[in-house]
Design a binder for these strands. Structure first.
Lengths: 165, 165
DNA sequence: GTTATTGCAAATGATTTGCACAAGG
DNA sequence: CCTTGTGCAAATCATTTGCAATAAC
C-alpha cells in the first residue's frame, strides 16, 4: 500500500477537526491493501477475520469518510449495493468494463475518452468534475466457444448475486 | 406517447407466454406519457392519483418487465434508488450530465463518444452491449454569479434528497 | 475536560416475496 | 380450466442512526 494514504487522510482529518483513531487506521490499511473492488459488507468480513474486530457501523462511517476525503470512490456495478474502488489514487480517470458473460470487471484508461467527454461537457456550458463510464460488454473470445460457467445464473438474475449476512 | 410501445410490449409478452393486463397497459401509458425520469415510488404516486389504483408491487414488477423487454432503462443518479429513463427508445445512445449545483439532469447525444467507446471496447477484446456515461459537472454560467438556490443542501448531503412515503 | 468516535441494536427505506384470490387465453 | 398476474402485508437487505460508553486531543 502507498504509505502516503494514512498521511493524506490525516491532512483531511486535521482540516475538519476530526480525530485519528485506531479503527480508521486499520480500515485504511485494509482498504488499500489490495487493488480489488469491494462492498462495505465484504470489507467488514475481511476486517472481522482480524483479531481486533471493528463494528459494522464504523466500517460504513469510515468508508463514507474516505469517499468524502476523495481517497476512495463509489462505483455502481448494478447490483444494488455500493461498490468501492480504491484505485482512483493511482489511476484518477479510469473507467470500467463489465463482462456480461462472467461478471468480471476490467479497469481501463483512455485519455481520448476523457478529452472528448470534457470537450462535450464544455460545449454544454459545464465544467466536468467527475466522469463515470461503465461499458457492459460480451467477450469476443468466448463468443464462439460458448461462454463462462457463471454465465447462466447471472443472465437469469440480470445482476451480480447477493450474499447473505 | 409513441403508439407503438404497447405493441412492442405485446410482442415481448407473446414471445414469453405472458399476459396482457389492464394494469400493464396503464403503467406503460403513464411511463411513456412524459419524457421525465422517475423512480418506482414516484410512478406509483402518479398512478395512485388515477381512479384505478394499482398496487406498489405491480408497479415494481411491471417496471422490471419493461426493463427486461428493453423498452425502459434503469439509470443511477447516485441517490440510492433506481431511476427509470423512458427516453432510450427515441435516443438509444444518449448520456447524462448531472449538474452538481442544482441537481438538474441533462440528456445529450454525441456520436463521437459512442464511436470512441466502441473502439476502445473492441481493442480490449469485447463487444459493447450497453454504455453508461454519467458526467457530474458544475455550471459555468453560475460559477461567477454564485449558484443555484438548492446548492447548499445538495452539497451537504452529497446526493439527491430522499422523499418519505 | 470537551468533543468526536465507537459499538450496539433498533430504525429506515427501497425493493422483493409468499400466498390467496382474480383474471387472461 | 390452467396458469400467470395482482394485491396485500410481511420479509429482506443494505445502510443509517440514536444513544450510552470510550477515547482523542
Amino acid at each position: 500500500m502507498d504509505a502516503g494514504i494514512q498521511e493524506r487522510l490525516d491532512v483531511y482529518i486535521q482540516k475538519k477537526g476530526l480525530r485519528r483513531t485506531g479503527q480508521r487506521e486499520e480500515i485504511v490499511e485494509e482498504v488499500f491493501s489490495k487493488d480489488e473492488h469491494f462492498t462495505a459488507e465484504e470489507l467488514y468480513d475481511r476486517i472481522r477475520k482480524t483479531t481486533s474486530g471493528i463494528s459494522r457501523a464504523t466500517v460504513y462511517r469510515t468508508l463514507a469518510l474516505l469517499v468524502e476525503a476523495d481517497l476512495l470512490r463509489e462505483i455502481d456495478l448494478g447490483d444494488n449495493q455500493t461498490t468501492y474502488d480504491p484505485n482512483f489514487l493511482d489511476k484518477p480517470a479510469h473507467n470500467h468494463l463489465v463482462c456480461i458473460d462472467c461478471g468480471k470487471v476490467i479497469e481501463f484508461e483512455d485519455s481520448h475518452i476523457e478529452l472528448l467527454n470534457d470537450c462535450v461537457t464544455r460545449r454544454l456550458g459545464f465544467r466536468a468534475v467527475r466522469e463515470t463510464l461503465k461499458i457492459e460488454a460480451t467477450c469476443e473470445q468466448l463468443r464462439l466457444k460458448g461462454s463462462c460457467p457463471n454465465l447462466l445464473e447471472r443472465r437469469l438474475s440480470g445482476r451480480r448475486l447477493r450474499k447473505k449476512r
